[in-house]
Design a protein around this nucleic acid. Structure first.
Lengths: 327, 327
DNA sequence: TGACGAATGGAAAGCGCTTTCCGGCCTAGA
DNA sequence: TCTAGGCCGGAAAGCGCTTTCCATTCGTCA
């Protein structure tokens, strides 16, 4: 019996084989402890069963929620997922795209936000173009500064909703804990927030904005700074939940202020456990797992006639951390 | 110029090449937009630059904390990580090991716990043996029912510490929210807890143990059940933090009981945000990221003379959710 | 019963790379 | 000036598979 026959029996492929023969081959394979050689198959078939996922930090609940959605979808298509953790380093991101290309990944799904720097964007774009030239597909979540298939949560409107919520409650002097200024998502969220305030003729001077990285500790430090600069603030909007949790910690542990009595807090993303923190966090909800799933769907759906965009609305979830300002 | 020369220039490999030549080749490669073909390299070199990570649920902070540690280590060795999410399905786990073997992954790192079923264990063991026969390495976190390189957090002692803590506070009637009975980690933690109680002549009747899956909702339902069965319980020990958060939610939202005044709660793992929940959770700390890192270290360190075992101690972190029983 | 077509097994050509082996060139020592 | 030894570039084999192309066999219809 030849290799050709065996290959056909094992994978069907172009031609069908008698059930009896397949049976026989499979038994022999099992008996010999044979395992097909993936790289060789990839070479011969000119395709691999793997896709790449690029995340900034898989330990961040935001990314892991997106990831689980994407992985579920990938699993349903029988694909393996190479998870690339950039540790928020743009250079590493570029490097990973190149490596995924070398691995001939079917596609690359970019999570997290792109950076605003033009040079970064064009470099990344070039890497992705090379990938596409090799037949790889590309999709991303949130804007990355160039056009590809993308799932676009409405960050802008989310920011707007947060402003509306806080102003509806009566807040006028609101601090903002912003993430890194060069992240596109961050910009969008902030822009929506500011637009809404402006529509109501409320000021948002620079002193009321504090920068932090997207971490709990960053949020904590930023909150302390904000209230140090202006103790009259009655509310704080954190541009993501992880930082919002830090803000709550600062208020509770460092500043001994009560939330929402002294200060209201609103976050963004609605990650897991936001309902369980102290106090339960009001936030802008994004269906993260669903977003991840849709992203992978886009990546795997070959019928791309043109660039597709899936818009996902944001919504407000009011919990215990926001209330009308005291007095 | 031949392919051989180019290959040597690009990767060094067995022989060194003039700097000038390398320069020239690299420029040409860049100019042509050349990207090496990973699968072909893998075939020729008989090795791949990828390792596999098997997790039950990457969105669970326990696993994502382990994962980030492992990924950091893998990145330092220039390896790509294939993350396989089993969705807690043992069959899928077996399937993933087989697929990683087919992909000729350098090694497979198993997170999470093994199941107690003998048939599962022997099947998994067989898959892993085949992998090892192909030169792949294997390591795991927590016991899996067979011997490999392993990082073994002291689950037993963690359980013991939890019991000691609660009994030291004066609790005698303690409920336990257990995870699936067929998970080895779960067994170990419970055993340690029970041993310590027994040493103090305290009963732990079956009615004081409620089973749940390892989720927040599971913990919540289990807490309601436990207190329904015995309203005199003064404390609850949840076998992991995710369930403990569910227990807190049940107490707060469903049963309107105060923690720790009415009921004390202790968790296990010390995942992110446990300090931020309401009230801050007393728990058994495990250095998760470090554990993940050590696991990958074991996996990548080829010098394995014999099976290596890294033991990691557990420790108590007392926060606000545990206190002496009322009156 | 003969011949034609369908169906099936096998030989062989690659897929894109690495690496061994060989041959030519250059340097240095006699 | 001649030769031995060291270097370096290139040809070619081979990694393990898939798939095309042929050859063969079988079934069927005239």
């Amino acid at each position: 019996m030849s290799l050709a026959t065996a290959s056909r029996a094992l994978h069907g492929g172009t031609r069908v084989v008698t059930a009896e023969l397949r049976e026989r081959v499979e038994k022999a394979a099992r008996h010999l402890g044979y395992t097909s050689h993936g790289p060789a198959q990839a070479l011969a078939r000119a395709t691999t069963p793997v896709v790449g996922l690029i995340v900034h930090d898989i330990a961040d609940p935001y990314f892991s929620a997106l990831a689980i959605g994407a992985m579920r979808e990938a699993h349903e298509s029988g694909l393996l997922v190479l998870v690339c953790n950039t540790f928020r380093d743009p250079l590493l991101e570029l490097d990973y795209v190149a490596r995924l290309r070398a691995q001939r990944a079917r596609g690359v799904l970019l999570f997290g936000s792109g950076f605003t720097e033009r040079s970064y964007q064009s470099k990344l774009h070039r890497e992705l173009d090379l990938l596409a030239g090799l037949g790889g597909r590309v999709a991303c979540i949130s804007p990355h500064g160039f056009t590809t298939d993308a799932v676009l949560p409405d960050h802008r409107d989310g920011g707007r909703l947060a402003a509306q919520h806080l102003t509806d409650l009566g807040h006028r002097r609101i601090g903002v804990v912003s993430g890194p200024a060069n992240l596109l998502v961050n910009q969008e969220r902030l822009r929506g927030f500011r637009d809404q305030l402006r529509a109501l003729d409320i000021e948002l001077p620079a002193e009321q904005i504090a920068k932090a990285d997207f971490t709990r500790e960053g949020g904590r430090a930023a909150a302390i700074e904000l209230l140090g600069r202006d103790s009259e603030l009655t509310a704080i909007f954190a541009l993501n939940d992880v930082m919002a949790v830090g803000v709550l910690a600062a208020l509770r542990d460092d500043l001994k202020l009560s939330v929402p009595d002294d200060v209201s807090v609103v976050g963004f993303d609605d990650i897991a456990l936001t309902a369980d923190v102290q106090p339960a966090l009001s936030t802008i909800h994004l269906p993260l797992e669903e977003i991840g799933r849709r992203g992978m769907e886009l990546l795997l759906d070959e019928q791309a006639v043109s660039t597709r965009t899936v818009r996902v609305p944001a919504s407000l979830v009011q919990r215990a951390s926001s209330a009308p300002p005291r007095g």
